[in-house]
Amino acid sequence: MSGYNFAYLDEQTKRMIRRAILKALAIPGYQVPFASREMPMPYGWGTGGVQVSAAVLTPEDRFKVIDQGADDTTNAVSIRRFFERTAGIATTTATRDATVIQTRHRIPEEPLREGQILVYQVPIPEPLRFLEPRESETRKMHSLAEYGLMHVKLYEDISRHGHIATTYAYPVKVEERYVMDPSPIPKFDNPKLSDCAAIQLFGAGREQRIYALPPYTTVASLDFDDHPFDPSRADHPCGLCGSVETYLDEVIMDDAGGRMFVCSDTDHCETRQNAGYRGKDAG
């Protein structure tokens, strides 16, 4: 690790990012601009999350990276190796052992505890972006809490599909104030955002925004009175561990329509299998 400052970024940059994080924690759900740096990976691969992780990591931390719930996909492996090399910190795949968890598109199934930090990679932080392209206007809408437009999107969903068809990046309202994009996590994970014991930090590298949820923040998913929020889930048990409560990935097995459903959170699934739970497809 010689030749690199601890966790790759220089201390001035980390200080700048920590300031943004503190401000974000003080105003839950508010998008704080920060001077995002070039990272040795392309935009869209988690540059925002990596910068936030670099700013919060200490030499004593144990680091976990998940990508779509899995610890062993390319993105997760390369980011984990990146911090092994540049920070020399310990890593783990076990949710309960980790102190900092960087994630793309999932919240771990196992409830997080106090002292943990969950870092989200965010592609587009502005929940109103596809409805209102002008940044000046969306900022004004946030500052004046004019969020009728967000419901127009949900209205359009219902009128076109008969139900709210947004299944990921489902907009939430934080402490009755800011409307926030929870990053592209499935709406199944939305209830876990609320009243979470861990600190949740959101980093968008290309868009240069950081926002945050301090522990035990109330987060409500937007909905209509007659079309309430529904954290839907595939109606199957996990093929490997038999769980009926977790979020599932659908895996195509052959050309004859064979498919199996498995937990997207690999660590949670393996922990259950080691404890003796078995699904119908387990060997």
Binding site: E146, I158, F224
Partner: peptide
Amino acid sequence: MAIGNRHY
């Protein structure tokens, strides 16, 4: 919706 109607 802007003035708070939340009933589809």
